[in-house]
Design a protein around this nucleic acid. Structure first.
Length: 399
DNA sequence: CACCCGTGGCA
DNA sequence: TTGCCAAGGGT
């Protein structure tokens, strides 16, 4: 399977079992691109501070700072850092607090902590010299797959691949790879592509050329194809929509929500409330409760929401456990309680309806997944699920 | 694998 | 204003 004939309209649809482990690598096209990339890089590479040195330590600092951080932001931090810590020994000997101080404002502060610890490892385990092999580099704190490849190729001239957002974008467009780059197997395919294209002279420059092109020409929103050395053979451009690549599944950021619900019983009847029409689980019945506010403890949240929505006051509370439920757009954690005593008369606000019901009548009402799970947790039979119970009784394993 | 980690720039 | 994105790594 080539990248060209693998195109399809949407990422992630269909062919779910088909992976890129068997995908072919278009060696000839990569070889052509390789030459053009190096030639372009020789004439267009930006003059960046870390390109003026061959010191692996300095390059290591730059690669660490450049993780998820733009060049323009990094430059002043890089300069200050190397002035204060010109070599690995000075960094290893420093107080972590001082390293943090030089990192302030740059973000991702674990990078500073890991760098400090890794510098000490380099001094003690490697006689103060960074190892050259990616396997050894990756044992150092803060050096992952990308950074190991970057150091091996850029600092040590080894034919090691690297894949970052730029590389994925450039190669996805050049080869018109229309697969969801959010999938692990697709990213692995890009690592194979990157491993193929890096073989040859000047692997470090080749890797930097890929990234430089992605950062300056083949940009995410508006690629400047007129200025691109790969434009002539770019499949994404030929298809007319290079800016649409790489494809990424809309990861509708599932917000995590915590909520509480309570089994409130009075004289043998249990309180059920109906959600307002429209909105999440609109019109369905559930146990009274509500969403927790930020940092709010579950029991406190339950007292608050019952007071607000129903005007009720619980005089006793027993934790029954919690259930999880995944909606398309949010991840719910529901803390379930048993109210041991309740006082007050229902003054309903925020719910469409309420009823005091026998447990079986409550279980028979239409309700959503979270309530179904909560009732199961409480040991209440759910007539709606008798079919699944039958299947379980027949020995079927539920996924 | 999903989530978290910081900040600044951009449309 | 909001969401996306940027030379990722750790858990």
């Amino acid at each position: 399977m080539t990248a060209k004939n693998s195109r399809k309209a949407d990422p992630g649809k269909g062919r779910r079992g088909r992976r890129y482990e068997e995908a072919e690598i278009p060696l000839k096209r990569l070889a052509q691109a390789r030459v053009r990339l190096l030639d372009w890089y020789d004439r267009n590479a930006r003059d960046l501070p870390w390109r003026r040195t061959r010191d692996p330590y300095a390059i290591w600092i730059s690669e660490t700072m450049l993780q998820q951080t733009r060049v323009d932001t990094v430059i002043p931090y890089y300069t200050r850092f190397l002035e204060r810590f010109p070599d690995v020994e000075s960094l290893a000997d420093a107080d972590l607090e001082e390293v943090y101080a030089l990192w302030t404002g740059l973000g991702y502060y674990s990078r500073a902590r890991n760098l400090h610890g890794a510098a000490q490892s380099v001094v003690t385990d490697w006689s103060g010299e960074l190892p050259e092999r990616v396997e050894s580099l990756r044992e150092l704190k803060g050096i992952g797959r990308y950074t190991a490849g970057a150091l091996a190729s850029i600092a040590f001239g080894r034919e090691e691949a690297l894949v970052d957002g730029n590389v994925i974008r450039v190669l996805a467009r050049f080869l018109a790879v229309r697969e969801d780059v959010g999938e692990t197997s697709v990213v692995e395919y890009f690592w194979r592509l990157a491993s193929a294209i890096v073989v040859g002279e000047r692997p470090g420059d080749l890797n930097q050329a890929l990234m430089e092109l992605g950062a300056t020409i083949c940009t995410p929103r508006s690629p400047d194809c007129e200025a691109c050395p790969l434009a002539k053979n770019c499949a994404g451009r030929a298809a007319g929509d290079p800016a649409a690549l790489p494809l990424k599944k809309k990861r509708t950021r599932v917000r995590r929500v915590e909520a509480v619900a309570a089994w409130i019983e009075r004289r043998g009847r249990v309180l059920a409330v109906r959600r307002p029409e429209g909105g999440l689980l609109g019109g369905l019945w559930e146990l009274p409760g509500g969403e927790l506010e930020a940092g709010e403890a579950p029991d406190a949240g339950l007292h608050r929401s019952l007071a607000q929505a129903l005007g009720l006051r619980l005089t006793g509370l027993e934790n029954a456990g919690e259930i999880g439920h995944l909606f398309s757009h949010r991840r719910l954690r529901l803390h379930v309680f048993r109210g041991l005593g309740v006082s007050g008369r229902v003054r309903r606000e925020g719910f469409a309806e309420h009823r005091w019901l026998t447990p079986s009548a409550l279980a028979a009402l239409p309700h959503g997944g979270p309530t179904r799970k909560a009732l199961a947790l409480l040991g209440v039979a759910d007539p709606e699920s008798h079919r699944s119970r039958l299947r379980q009784a027949c020995g079927e394993i539920q996924a």
